[in-house]
């Protein structure tokens, strides 16, 4: 499987190169047009990116994640989520780098093969930084009101977390 993942990009690039060689249309011009629109897109995202990264950085530096974990622990205990992974869990939707750092810390303190490390790994593999994605995507679309996106996304993450904690026990 990892062979497919590592080979897929070279394969696509080769196919594109073949197309460029043998197609009669002016594909290089198409590429330039696309690339230029890509630059404009990324530049327009930069302000939102600044806000998002600063907010995420403040959140992790202030220890808000830990306080949130303390507040949530009675509820999560009912759901079968071990309290040790709560700090990692609260940061996960907010910052990818901080959550990776916390995951590494969990591995150090609880080994990567024990229940806690395993469950945290499964959660990390099946979730993503919701906050960052919502901010960037809504900025690209030019919308200010994301309606039910945030609650729905958080609910899904909660669901996968509970599921991960439940089935991790079976796989260790």
């Amino acid at each position: 499987m990892s062979l497919v993942s590592s080979i897929i990009v070279p394969v696509i690039i080769t196919l594109i190169a073949l197309l460029l060689l043998f197609s009669k249309k002016d594909l290089l011009e198409s590429f330039n047009e696309g690339a230029k629109s890509g630059i404009k897109l990324t530049v327009s995202l930069f302000p939102s990116l600044i806000l998002t990264c600063c907010a995420a950085s403040l959140f992790t530096a202030s220890g808000a994640g830990e306080i949130l974990s303390h507040l949530l622990s009675p509820i999560t205990a009912l759901l079968g989520i071990p309290s040790e992974i709560l700090p990692f869990l609260t940061v996960r939707p907010i910052s990818g780098s901080a959550s990776s750092a916390l995951l590494a810390e969990l591995f150090e303190n609880h080994t990567s093969d024990g229940y806690i490390g395993f469950a945290a790994s499964v959660i990390a593999g099946s979730s993503d930084t919701l906050f960052y994605i919502l901010a960037i995507y809504s900025s690209a679309a030019g919308v200010k009101n994301t309606r039910y996106a945030m609650p729905a996304g958080l609910f899904t993450m909660l669901f996968t977390t509970v599921l991960a904690c439940m089935i991790s026990g079976m796989f260790i």
């Binding site: 979730s127 993503d128 994605i133 899904t156």
Partner: peptide, 20 residues
């Protein structure tokens, strides 16, 4: 589109495997 990008079907979670 946004939400399925945030919870995609993950076939090969390289980052986590590398960390492990």
């Amino acid at each position: 589109l946004t939400l399925i990008s945030a919870s995609p079907i993950s076939i090969m979670p390289m980052t986590v495997i590398t960390l492990r």
